[in-house]
């Protein structure tokens, strides 16, 4: 049997409408100014950016090439430029280059992945501005339901370069973990045969 709210004093329809309206207004305001900017970088009012919330969702931004050169000058080991690394064998599709900035919030880990065919190659270089990040460069086979993945490199560093050839079709890329409480920015340059999936 229903425990009816009418056991208490029923509220009038005016109060009901007012309540529903207030609920909707609070929800809309919170969604538009706080939740959507912070979670999805969706900021129709522009206020989310003013409050500084959109940085939480800005997983991917294009950075001009000289910005990468600037960070290179402050890093201790001299990074090799992409042209020094031998070109991967161009099988079927064209090679793509991407310059990506990934934000890893303090105390958390994120994944950034690329869709790659079996035997597609990727050459990469990444650098982070602060403390060393733990990372796992790994691949997950397409269509897998067992949770299997292969780690190609697992380490902790501020900058890494190299290349790999995908052993299977699937999503390949990095898991970066920021154990400090300061937000870290990873500047990642990749070249090869892939499609960007992005943040997972």
């Amino acid at each position: 049997m229903n425990a009816s709210p009418q056991d208490n004093q029923p509220i009038g329809i005016g109060t009901l409408m007012k309540a529903a309206l207030i609920a909707a207004v609070i929800a809309a305001a919170t969604l538009l100014v706080v939740i959507l900017p912070a979670e999805f970088n969706v900021d129709p009012t522009g206020l989310g950016k003013k409050l500084g919330l959109t940085v939480l969702a800005e997983g991917k931004t294009k950075v001009p090439a000289d910005a990468l050169a600037q960070t290179n000058q402050t890093a201790s080991p001299e990074p090799v430029s992409m042209s020094d690394v031998p070109d991967p064998i161009d099988e079927a599709g064209a090679k793509t280059s991407e310059l990506i900035e990934v934000i890893v919030p303090g105390g958390s880990g994120i994944e950034y992945k690329f869709q790659m065919e079996q035997y597609a190659q990727m050459t990469y270089q990444w650098i982070t501005d602060g403390a060393p990040l733990e990372f796992d460069l790994h691949g997950e086979p397409a269509g897998d339901t067992t949770g299997y993945f292969e780690s190609y490199v697992v380490a902790s560093a501020t900058t890494v370069r190299g290349s790999f050839t995908a052993p299977f079709d699937g999503s390949h890329g990095w898991y970066w973990k920021n154990t400090s409480d300061q937000e870290a920015t990873v500047t990642l340059e990749v070249e090869g045969r892939f499609e960007v999936i992005g943040l997972k």
């Binding site: 009418q6 029923p10 329809i13 009901l16």
Partner: peptide
């Protein structure tokens, strides 16, 4: 429902 909305409306 707790506000008695269905009953009222």
């Amino acid at each position: 429902d707790n506000l008695g909305g269905f009953q009222r409306l």
